[in-house]
Write a protein that binds this DNA or RNA. Sequence first.
DNA 1: TTAAACTTTCGGGACTTATTGAAAGTACGA
DNA 2: TCGTACTTTCAATAAGTCCCGAAAGTTTAA
Lengths: 162, 162
Amino acid sequence: MRRRFITQWGALGTQWGINRTMAMIHALLLVPERELSTDEVMEELDISRGNANTNLRELIDWRLVERMVRLGERREYFAAEKDVWKIFCMVARERKRRETEPARKVLDACIRETESGDSPEAREFRRELTALSDFVALANTVMEKVAAAEQNRVLPRILKVL
Amino acid sequence: MRRRFITQWGALGTQWGINRTMAMIHALLLVPERELSTDEVMEELDISRGNANTNLRELIDWRLVERMVRLGERREYFAAEKDVWKIFCMVARERKRRETEPARKVLDACIRETESGDSPEAREFRRELTALSDFVALANTVMEKVAAAEQNRVLPRILKVL
DNA sequence: TTAAACTTTCGGGACTTATTGAAAGTACGA
DNA sequence: TCGTACTTTCAATAAGTCCCGAAAGTTTAA
């Protein structure tokens, strides 16, 4: 069953824009109570060392996985964050970085470059883009707050507002 | 400038998990005041008919673009939704459909199949997965409400709560 | 019913991204 | 300092995705 969960989670990851291996490693670490070494990950998922290493690092970069050092042991072990709320924050943070921030940059650059234009079209263009940019900025702030929030009370509270 | 906006938006799309052409068509339709035909889209972006057709349909599927019919004319025209709030709702709806719903399905299927297990591991497994599933369900509800909300007051209101 | 105008589908090639496996790098203990 | 145990990098290749263009399908007007 664990194996099935892992492969399915991997398939899901693809749709989320996360690569399959990364999602599978995450699933693998999410379930068992103990941390695993690189070699164990390689063996369990039947993947190469390079692949395991790259994706473990990526997961650490997302802060979804932590490196664990055991006293007196050379080998490193890896453990996944299990608190769903924290996972959510990490994903929000990452998405902000990869999605809303670049969008905002592009929009603002375009707005700035049409500032000189004075034709009706230029104004219209600027107006459209500004509306978009403001909105993205707002969404950005929301995500930031969500990512920074400490307690897992936020989502229920949001739900109440809606 | 418009052209630059279009290409940059296309590049952004890639990071969002949307294909380049789709994002470019969206940008193309977002800016000008008038709707465009398939042929005009092909010409502006220098893409094939098949490509234009496929991606226009995909955009329509996302409800980001509408098909416009002109009386007495055979040809169809396309126009993008410009209300940023509506765009947001559409994206939320689509993401829910493509991200949280499948995740929930996988989790619930796995939980159901371990219901019989009674070992400590099985219980632990079930506990973990249930926590995740509940959380995803909560997120799901939030997105649903957001997508259904009519006014563009929701985001500011959420912001106040945080 | 047919031709014309337009839309959709789909196989194959181009391009992009992920993975391997081996070599190089690093850190530790003796 | 060296050997060992481990981690990281990277070039080659495999896998996956996107796009073209031609052919097939559909709708409309005559």
